[in-house]
Simulated assay, not measured.
Amino acid sequence: MPIFSSAQAVVVFVLAVAALGLTAFAFVDALRRPAAAFEYASKRTKVFWAVLLGVALALAFVSVPDPRSGALPGILGILSVVAAGVYMADVRPAVRTYRGRGPRGY
């Protein structure tokens, strides 16, 4: 029995795994940034983004379809990509410019 039911199932599975990777990267990046960077950039708090991206990561994880079913991604998977996309496109560039005090720049 083949692992994938169709070529479409392969594409959907790869996109879902890529969405999971994007969301995981955004979540880890938000955790690594100092809390002061979010205030400096006039963005919501670090806790807000950590919780939002943590929930998005969980949703992205459960949205990865079974490769044998050929199921399409649900709205929860799409919402997780939107949350990660907003962080990556708007918040991350703003908080990266923060240079705090201290020997390492944090």
Rank of each mutant, 00 (worst) to 15 (best):
P103L: 05
I75Y: 14
A7N: 11
A84G: 03
F13W: 13
R68N: 10
I78F: 07
A83S: 10
W49G: 09
R101N: 00
I78L: 13
A84Q: 00
V62P: 02
S69G: 01
A60K: 10
T23F: 14
V17Y: 12
V86K: 03
V11N: 06
R104Q: 06
V64L: 06
A16V: 08
V55Q: 10
L52A: 12
L76S: 04
G102I: 03
Y87R: 06
A18N: 14
Y106F: 06
P2N: 06
I75Q: 07
A50W: 11
P67H: 03
R32T: 12
V95T: 04
A83P: 07
L15D: 10
G77K: 00
K46W: 09
E39H: 14
I78P: 05
Y40S: 10
L53T: 05
A9M: 07
R33D: 06
R99F: 03
G77L: 02
S80H: 02
V81W: 04
G105D: 01
A18D: 13
F38Q: 13
L22F: 15
V14I: 15
Q8G: 06
V47C: 08
V81L: 15
L59R: 05
P93E: 01
V47G: 08
G100Y: 02
L20Y: 12
A35S: 13
P67C: 05
L20N: 10
R44M: 15
V95I: 12
M88A: 03
R104C: 00
K46S: 13
V28N: 13
V91Y: 00
R32P: 09
E39R: 14
G54D: 13
Y106N: 13
R32D: 11
A9V: 09
L31R: 14
V95C: 02
F27H: 13
E39I: 11
G102E: 02
G100C: 00
L22C: 08
A19V: 12
L57S: 02
V28D: 11
Y98L: 00
T97E: 09
V62R: 06
V86D: 06
K46T: 05
S42Y: 14
D66N: 13
